[in-house]
């Protein structure tokens, strides 16, 4: 979904600048042809995205009205309740759980993505250097990302259990898997461990396309390592980094399996929106489960759109910056050759 949203962004300004480009070569039948060629894709997208989405929204407007008749059998019927399932998100016991889960989701997203970005950048910087065993380091850094989340959840559960490695290393008696701040911390640690390599690798890819001569020029100008990082590496790697961060944010907002396996279902300190939706559907309350899922979807969509707007601005900004840099380097080079 994200790719379809993000991909037009870089090309859009070009089309605006040059609206007639590409049209000259088009023949009248071509547009229809394009639509026909695209229609299988659209059909598949409609089937796997539009239909479930509409179905979920439809379901979220209903509530299962179940009661027991005189013989103890469930009398079942679905009643149309309009937006009542959504209104329930903010009142009473279910409202408290929803706001708690919403807070947890946001908290985990902000903290984990922030830490991952910093750590991922450090990893990329380390991997970008030429040294012996670099290929081995790159491969080994990928391992946490390659481990399925549920498995890494079990792994960390083992580390964090009361008589586990974490407690014996720290010499503490923290109950990581019980309710409380420690369980939040446990989730953050495990999540960052798992996903920092993802950001690291994407950023590394971005770093490797930075031409070497830019650094050489900077060296000649006497720029130190920090200056190079701040003025060359970071600005040039920014577009890649932002895409990586966007991916991670969308992923973190849907976090489910790690807290579920590591801490357990029903623990309020780590319950996320996905877990709440799962729990509701497990209780056969599909209406409110759908409402949770739709709200989560909207939340993710809003974050994505806002981020893409920011990202779009930054992409062009980065481009300007890149051309400025190129000009700058050119003038620097000219200066140097003078």
């Amino acid at each position: 979904m994200t790719t379809t949203v993000t991909s037009p962004a870089p090309s859009a300004p070009q089309d605006l600048k040059n609206p007639n480009r590409g049209l000259k070569t088009r023949t009248p039948g071509e547009g229809r042809m394009a639509a026909m060629l695209l229609s299988p894709t659209l059909l598949v997208l409609a089937l796997v995205i539009v239909y479930p989405l509409i179905s979920a929204i439809h379901q979220s407007l209903f509530s299962a009205e179940s009661g027991l008749d005189a013989d103890g059998f469930v009398t079942e019927g679905e009643a149309f309740v309009g937006l009542a399932n959504y209104a329930d998100l903010f009142v009473g016991e279910s409202g408290r759980r929803f706001l708690n889960a919403f807070g947890n989701t946001t908290f985990f997203t902000v903290t984990t993505v922030l830490l991952e970005t910093v750590l991922g950048l450090c990893l990329a910087l380390a991997m970008n250097r030429a040294f012996r065993g670099r290929a081995f380091l790159r491969a080994s850094i990928l391992v946490p990302w390659a481990v399925p989340t549920a498995v890494s959840g079990l792994l960390w559960r083992w580390i964090f259990q009361s008589d586990g490695i974490a407690n014996s290393l720290l010499g503490s008696e923290i109950l990581w898997t019980a309710e409380g701040t420690a369980s939040k911390l446990a989730v953050i640690i495990a999540e960052v461990w798992k996903t920092a390599p993802f950001i690291g690798l994407l950023v590394l890819a971005g770093m490797q396309i930075i031409p070497e001569e830019v650094y050489e020029a900077a060296k000649i100008d006497g720029a130190g390592w920090w200056r190079q990082l701040g003025s060359i590496t970071l600005p040039l790697v920014k577009p890649t980094l932002l895409v990586a961060v966007l991916f991670r944010m969308l992923d973190a907002l849907r976090m489910f399996d790690l807290p579920f396996v590591l801490i357990g279902p029903g623990k309020e300190s780590v319950e996320t929106l996905s877990m709440l939706a799962w729990d509701e559907s497990n209780q056969l309350r599909y209406g409110s489960a759908s409402a949770f899922a739709v709200v989560l979807f909207l939340y993710v969509a809003v974050v994505a759109v806002v981020f893409v707007k920011v990202l779009g601005a930054d992409v062009t900004g980065a481009k300007k910056l890149g051309s400025k840099k190129r000009k700058a380097t050119r003038s620097q080079k000219a200066e140097a050759t003078r």
């Binding site: 409609a46 539009v50 509409i54 209903f62």
Partner: peptide, 29 residues
């Protein structure tokens, strides 16, 4: 103009598919 027609075709296709999906949902419900 050509470009607009393309978009029209695309929109019609999408609308058709969406309508089909909605009617499917209704059946399920």
């Amino acid at each position: 103009r050509q470009r607009r027609r393309t978009w029209q075709t695309l929109l019609t296709t999408t609308a058709f598919v969406t309508a089909a999906a909605v009617s499917l949902t209704a059946c399920g419900g």
